[in-house]
Design a protein around this nucleic acid. Structure first.
Length: 227
DNA sequence: GCGACAG
DNA sequence: ATCTTGTCGC
């Protein structure tokens, strides 16, 4: 994949990182997907060496043929601690490096974490999407901020995730009676399109297939590079 | 001051 | 994220 040149450095103080998020958040665009998406890239990370090395991977899933089209991964040293709200400074560098290794051009990227459903409206899905300059979705397993009502038990049920006066995302029941996932836009997509893509990517499991497979992949690689 | 807090 | 076994259910 041909990607834009890096716009900023990553080894910032938490304070600078927060300021950068506020600046970059202005560049996020919400827009309908140009075409019906077919290739969905799911990304995820895992850690080895007592947390000093991060493994990032993308698994590209073909929605039409229901099969994996390509996989790419990378190992890199960890340079930022986990701080709620600053997750992207820890995982994005590795995810971008791994994306650079993809040969196919995914229609949409799906990140394991929030996008706009973030205190400063700039979660990891926004950061990844902005730097990739590609449609990106944030699909998280738990809430970071905002309030919501539990969606009905039925598969496909949704409720809004709100913070102050903004609808920042949705909760989506991807499987009957199983905890919902939290969806928000990362970049260049609408919340509605994001929700459709996530639901269409689910094959009977709580997490969408691209993300689920990426999770399996990084954990498989992790065992290879033993603790 | 007291909780909450993606992965 | 990671540390960790068995167990209940489709």
């Amino acid at each position: 994949m041909k990607l834009p040149r890096a716009r900023h450095r990553w080894n910032l103080s938490p304070r600078r990182a927060v300021a950068l998020q506020r600046e970059l958040a202005e560049g996020i665009r919400e827009a309908p997907l140009p075409i019906a998406p077919r290739l969905i890239a799911g990304g995820d990370c895992a850690f080895v060496d007592d947390g000093r090395t991060i493994i990032a991977a993308w698994v590209v899933w073909d929605l039409r043929d229901a099969c994996v089209v390509e996989e790419a991964h990378v190992l890199r040293p960890v340079r930022f601690p986990y701080v709620p709200g600053l997750l992207s400074f820890r995982e994005t560098p590795a995810l971008l490096a791994a994306a650079r290794r993809l040969r196919v051009e995914p229609d949409v990227f799906m990140v394991d974490g929030h996008g706009r459903a973030h205190p400063r409206r700039f979660g990891i899905a926004c950061h990844v999407g902005l730097l990739l300059d590609r449609p990106t979705i944030g699909c998280a397993k738990s809430r970071l901020c905002g309030r919501f009502e539990q969606p009905e038990d039925r598969t496909g049920s949704i409720t809004t995730l709100s913070d102050r006066d903004d609808v920042i995302g949705l909760t989506l029941r991807t499987r009957h009676a199983v905890k919902p996932v939290f969806i928000s836009i990362g970049h260049q997509i609408t919340l509605s399109d994001a929700c459709d893509v996530v639901m269409k990517s689910c094959l009977g499991f709580r997490l969408p297939e691209p993300t689920r497979l990426a999770d399996q992949l990084v954990n498989r690689i992790k065992k290879t590079h033993g603790p």
